[in-house]
Amino acid sequence: MGIAIYLLTFAILLAGLYAVVAKKNVVKIIVGAAILDYAVNLFLVLIGWRTVSTAAGAEGGAAPILAAGQSGRQLLASAVDPLPQALILTSIVIALGVTALMVALALRLHEKYGTFDLENIRRLRG
């Protein structure tokens, strides 16, 4: 595993970036922006992953929820880092807002120009 999963995340990021930069369709650009967000979220969740080497081998990756009767120290020994998960939740909320705004703008653009093709949506120059 190790570095390969990060490379995969990076590949998703590049795929999203490609869609945003190279595609000419408004809807495809919105999908590309969403993929870009997911790639970063995936990266953030991966950096929170922790394993603890015990006698039985690598252990960990438990959800960071305190179970009944469990001490904080026991939880710390096995749980993943909860902070990146909180970050992802926030970043998802932001991405939701941005995507909603993008869709609204795309609908309005379609109303004005009658097309989703950016080749034809070019009234601004310079």
Partner: peptide
């Protein structure tokens, strides 16, 4: 509210009380 605004937009354009 966002979904309703977008749905309203699709159904009737801006005259239907679109949320903008």
């Amino acid at each position: 509210g966002v979904f309703l605004a977008l749905a309203a937009f699709r159904a009737g354009g801006r005259s239907q009380g679109a949320d903008a």
